[in-house]
Each structure stands twice: as structure tokens, then as C-alpha cells.
Simulated assay, not measured.
Amino acid sequence: MRIFLLIATNLAVVLLLSIVMSVLGLNPGRNGDMQSLLIMSAVIGMGGAFISLAMSKWLAKRSTGAHVITQPQNEVEQWLYTTVRRQAEKAGIGMPEVAIYDAPEMNAFATGMNKNSALVAVSTGLLQQMDRQQVEAVLGHEVSHVANGDMVTMTLLQGVLNTFVVFIARIVGSVVDGYLRGNSREGGPGIGYFVATFAAQILLGLGASIIVAWFSRRREFRADAGGANLAGRGSMISALQRLGGEQGANTLPKEIAAFGISGAWGKLFASHPPIDERIAALRGGGA
């Protein structure tokens, strides 16, 4: 889920920054200044990625309605808080915020700008349908994402991809605009430039999202190994087997439900590898 949030927010922020730059008349590529275009693309691309990261924890809380545990109110909250604290100490990171959100599916996520200011959240469905050892493994998986710096690493990757998306999209816009307008350069960029640029940016952005999703799938194996190290390999495998029995039943929060994709295209955008591959990696000595 955190990957859908990051990708969706990133696309929105980058498009917004692009529109603002265009409205302000900052379109250096239209006049052939490639160096200025590359600098502007990097500002939009990297800026959009890191703005998305900065918003990730707030957006995740808002979209799921997560309740952050500040003072445990019952035995379950106390156990969750204590377990995450123990795992965070073992992983060498600062204590994350711990939250529970109301959802029927078994799910959990971690997000945040750095290792010492993260959020780990679990669904009520996870707590109800898994035993304590399985939940502990899931928590270990999420804490490992934080310890591995996955959100920051993926943000850097997204920023680089954004830069090239913005850069190439504006070149495409200039070529299309030049073709439509011939030798005329009066009055600045024409409508062809803006339409072609934004169309190319959306299409290239989706292509970049496929690369980010592929990278995310690679990081899941490492987080599984981390979860096995923190909670035990048997518990991690058991948790994955339990999740495997519920494949296809997940429902995303309504704010991001439109980004759910199924079928052949879904495999390209999937942020997680198949459960059986993850279990096989753990059984092969991945932890």
C-alpha cells in the first residue's frame, strides 16, 4: 500500500510542479537550452519525489484513518508497542510510531522520511486473523523496511526517473510544437507543446512506476529476511502462508482504490512478488 501511496502522490506532485513551472513560463527546453532544461527537470523530479516522501506518513494516516498508539489502552496495544520497540532496538533504529487502522483485510505498512521517524501500522484484520507469532513476523518485516532505508532508497530512484520523465517529455513537447507551428516562434509555446508534454509525462510516468514497482519487489525479499531475523524464520514463513490464503481479498483505502490493478498489467505494477516465491526464498536460506 505504501508504494501505491508513494507513486500516486509522486505523480500528482510532479504534474503540479510541472504545471506551475509552465504557467510561470519556465520552459527552457522550448528554446533549445538543454542544460537549463535538465536542471529544471531535476528540480521538479527530485523535488516531487522528496515532497511525496515528506507527505507519506501524514497521507498514510489520513487515508487509512490510523490510530497512533501514544499510551497503550489495552493489552493488544501494549503488546504491539512493546514488540515494535524491541524490534526497533534490535534493528538499530529509532522507535517508530505504532498505529492500528480499521480494515477487514490482513495488511500492514511502514513509511516515513528516515529510520528514526517512521510509522508502522497494522490493520485490525491482521490482528484478528493472525496469531501473535505471525503478527510479530509481519511487524519485523515492516521494521526491516525502515531499517533498510527502503522508502528513502525508492524515493531517490523515483527522483532520478522523474528527472528523465520531465526532461524527455519536454523534448517531445518541443518536437510536436515545432512540427505543428513550423518555423514560427512568436508568442512562446503553443497548445501543442503543453498537450504533448503532459501526455508524454503521464505515459512516461507510468513507465517509471513500473520500474519502481519492480525495484520494490526486490526489496520485499530483503524485508522478509529481516522479518525472519527479528521474529524467526518459521514465524515469517507461517505469516506469508496465512497471507497467501487471502490473496485477492485485499481492499485498498477508498482514497487510493482507483490505483488497484489486476490482470497482466497488474503484475508489472505489483509492489510485492508472489507469496510462493517469497516463501521459497526464505526456505532457501534467505534469512
Score class of each variant (00 low, 15 high):
Gln71Pro: 04
Gly226Ile: 09
Asn74Lys: 07
Gly263Met: 07
Gly149Trp: 05
Arg85Lys: 12
Gly178Thr: 05
Ile100Arg: 03
Ser235Ile: 06
Gly125Phe: 01
His272Met: 07
Ala49Ile: 09
Leu127Tyr: 02
Gly284Leu: 06
Gly192Ala: 12
Asp102Pro: 02
Arg86Tyr: 01
Leu5Gln: 12
Ala54Ile: 11
Leu157Gly: 04
Leu16Thr: 15
Glu75Arg: 11
Phe50Pro: 06
Ser262Lys: 15
Thr197Arg: 01
Ile256Met: 07
Ile100Lys: 01
Thr111Gly: 04
Pro28Ser: 11
Val138Gly: 01
Val84Ile: 13
Thr9Asp: 09
Gly25Phe: 12
Val135Met: 08
Leu180Asn: 08
Leu139His: 04
Arg219Ile: 04
Gly260Thr: 15
Lys115Thr: 12
Arg242Met: 02
Met1Ser: 05
Lys267Asp: 07
Gln71Ile: 11
Met106Gly: 11
Leu282Val: 09
Trp265Glu: 14
Met21Ala: 08
Glu136Phe: 03
Gln134Glu: 14
Leu17Ile: 05
Pro189Val: 15
Phe259Thr: 12
Gly25Cys: 06
Ala137Met: 05
Ser117Arg: 09
Ser174Trp: 04
His272Ile: 00
Gln87Lys: 10
Thr64Gln: 07
Phe215Met: 13
Asp150Ile: 09
Leu11Asn: 05
Gln201Leu: 10
Pro28Thr: 14
Ala225Arg: 13
Leu268Ile: 14
Pro274Asn: 03
Glu246Trp: 14
Leu282Trp: 01
Leu204Phe: 13
Thr153Cys: 07
Trp58Lys: 13
Arg217Phe: 00
Ser41Gln: 02
Ala108Ser: 10
Ile261Leu: 14
Ala99Cys: 08
Phe269Glu: 11
Glu220Tyr: 12
Val138Asn: 00
His141Ser: 00
Phe198Asp: 01
Lys61Cys: 03
Ile39Tyr: 05
